[in-house]
Computed example of a mutant assay.
Amino acid sequence: MSKQPQLSLGDLADPSKFSKPIDLDNRPTDGLLASVRDIMLIRYAEEAVAELAIAKEAVCPCHLGIGQEAVAAGVSTVLTPSDRVYGGHRSHAHFLALGGSVDAMFAEILGKVTGASKGMGGSMHLFEPSVGFHGSVPIVGATIPIAAGAALACKMDGKGAVAVAYFGDGACEEGVFHETLNMAAVMKLPVLFVAENNLYSSHLDIGQRQATDSVARFAYAAGIPTRVVDGNDVVAVAQAAEDLVGQARVGGGPGFIEAVTFRWRGHVGPNEDIDVGVRRSPEELAAWKGRDPLARLIQSLVIHRGVTRDQIDSIATKVRSQISRAVEAAREASYPDEHALLDLVYSSGRSVA
């Protein structure tokens, strides 16, 4: 059992803290540059989604996680395609960090037949099991018990695979979250719960919804090992994931990461919505942008590993080019045929007459 967590996040929830370069922990430079690429891919892709929404080309609801990219990028470093990962309504990052198709994501957002869910689901219904991403849904907390079921299947398979459930701090107020933690602990399921605590549920600050700002206390109550980390530090997230996923793979049961971060955009859509919420202000948002996970990682690589700005710019150019091609391919793709609706709702051979 984990040491009892503090009830308050303290400095982790203070945007003026932890803006210093990241401790790279003797990790290979190539792997860290791969994390730079992952974070860039997620951020630039979501910026492109925002532009599509502003232009009204993307008409499905789009929940952006710009500012939170290091969580998915860090956790995904320890996962394999055999693992079973689930997200929620804000899951572009989880999908892309595993290697999900950029083309399929943009096609899905534009409702095209080449999309991840054949153009039928939009931004909140991404799916690519070949890379280990087994789905996202818009209902808050809904994939948490599904991940536990997948973890039970992993345990029965006996091949060392794990399941992962990503969710926000708001999902910790759902009954199914607490029920699933208890079940996972009792059955020692190989599942990692990743709470992306961005301090807001939709539009309301966590201080107005919960008695304390840390959600790790729920995992402690269930006897689940926990790590509370700076979610804007990709190395800290990766270290926590390594420990907990490593334990889960060898029968150690579930683990829980509380990654403290902050989304730069509003709950849904492209705007920053700085006027929404009890205490979200332009000053607070600016302070959190100073804790930018991408800028901090690049700064550390330049200072401590001699990485050049030309190297960083080269990665950025390739990522932006990949995203531009994906957007254009999505624009040119066809919409699903109207008959596909029944094909994807009813199983083959079933009469709908």
Rank of each mutant, 00 (worst) to 15 (best):
residue 303 I to N: 14
residue 105 M to L: 15
residue 198 N to G: 04
residue 1 M to H: 11
residue 163 A to G: 08
residue 210 Q to M: 14
residue 150 A to Y: 03
residue 259 A to W: 07
residue 75 V to C: 06
residue 276 V to M: 05
residue 331 R to L: 11
residue 193 F to D: 03
residue 50 A to W: 00
residue 107 A to E: 10
residue 42 I to L: 05
residue 190 P to A: 13
residue 83 D to C: 11
residue 261 T to N: 06
residue 353 A to H: 10
residue 299 Q to G: 00
residue 19 S to D: 12
residue 178 H to W: 06
residue 268 V to C: 12
residue 270 P to I: 01
residue 286 A to Q: 09
residue 271 N to R: 13
residue 85 V to G: 02
residue 217 R to F: 06
residue 120 M to L: 15
residue 214 S to Q: 06
residue 264 W to C: 02
residue 252 G to M: 13
residue 145 P to V: 03
residue 155 K to E: 13
residue 330 A to S: 05
residue 58 A to Y: 00
residue 217 R to H: 10
residue 32 L to A: 04
residue 169 D to H: 02
residue 302 V to T: 13
residue 323 I to Y: 06
residue 278 V to F: 12
residue 190 P to S: 11
residue 104 A to M: 11
residue 41 L to A: 04
residue 235 V to Q: 08
residue 306 G to L: 00
residue 160 G to I: 05
residue 297 L to R: 09
residue 269 G to D: 02
residue 80 T to Y: 01
residue 68 Q to H: 01
residue 137 V to F: 12
residue 148 A to P: 00
residue 336 P to R: 11
residue 68 Q to I: 00
residue 220 Y to G: 11
residue 60 C to S: 09
residue 255 G to V: 05
residue 315 I to M: 08
residue 91 S to V: 03
residue 152 L to S: 03
residue 292 D to R: 08
residue 16 S to F: 09
residue 200 Y to P: 00
residue 20 K to L: 06
residue 34 A to V: 11
residue 216 A to K: 01
residue 10 G to C: 08
residue 9 L to R: 00
residue 161 A to L: 10
residue 345 V to E: 08
residue 144 I to Q: 08
residue 244 L to S: 05
residue 142 A to G: 09
residue 70 A to C: 05
residue 165 A to C: 09
residue 57 E to G: 01
residue 82 S to V: 11
residue 74 G to I: 02
residue 220 Y to Q: 12
residue 282 P to D: 12
residue 184 A to Y: 03
residue 233 D to T: 00
residue 323 I to R: 03
residue 171 A to G: 07
residue 318 K to N: 14
residue 274 I to G: 13
residue 105 M to Y: 01
residue 204 L to D: 14
residue 168 G to H: 03
residue 309 R to F: 07
residue 68 Q to P: 00
residue 157 D to P: 07
residue 214 S to H: 04
residue 172 C to S: 13
residue 259 A to V: 04
residue 126 L to Q: 10
residue 216 A to W: 03
residue 317 T to N: 14
residue 26 N to Y: 06
residue 171 A to V: 02
residue 347 S to F: 12
residue 256 F to G: 01
residue 144 I to T: 10
residue 351 S to I: 11
residue 159 K to Y: 09
residue 49 V to N: 10
residue 163 A to I: 07
